[in-house]
Amino acid sequence: MAQVLAVDPRRCTGCRTCELVCSHAKTGQFRPTQSAIRRVTVLDDLGFQPWCCLQCTDAECVQVCPVQAIRRTPEGWLEVDPDSCIGCSLCSLVCPFGNIRVIEGYATKCDLCGGDPLCVRWCPRNALAVDEAANLAEAKAAASAAAYRKLIADQRGGCGVKRVQ
């Protein structure tokens, strides 16, 4: 099953540690503007949103690439082969989320660091996690179901069953 990088904006402090370590791994320099993961600032109420490639199943970037430089690994995520990439920026133009960019001639995107992402290891707030999307959804469903049950209980004094007086 395909793995994704899950981001939790409620935990993110905006510290950009993820950008610093990612850019170092990708470019050899601490260069946050060239990181594959980005901490986006939401300006209207000052919130932070880590933002990163979603390893789409039916990926626009893969389809548009004229030289097939973006390939799926056996583990299921997408990697750019820099030797094939011609730096045409088409992938960058079609990605619906702004998650792939051409930096110094090559397309750069999150490749999950080969399965053990640095940003996940370095994020001081556990705002990032890597897992199969299905597991993440399962966990989220369990959490929201529990929250829903609590809400109902608070409102009705029972497990969703309205008491007849």
Binding site: R10, T13, C15, R16, T17, L20, G47, P124, R125
Partner: peptide, 8 residues
């Protein structure tokens, strides 16, 4: 929400 400095 918490707000941090860079790299904090």
């Amino acid at each position: 929400q918490l707000i941090a400095c860079a790299a904090c």
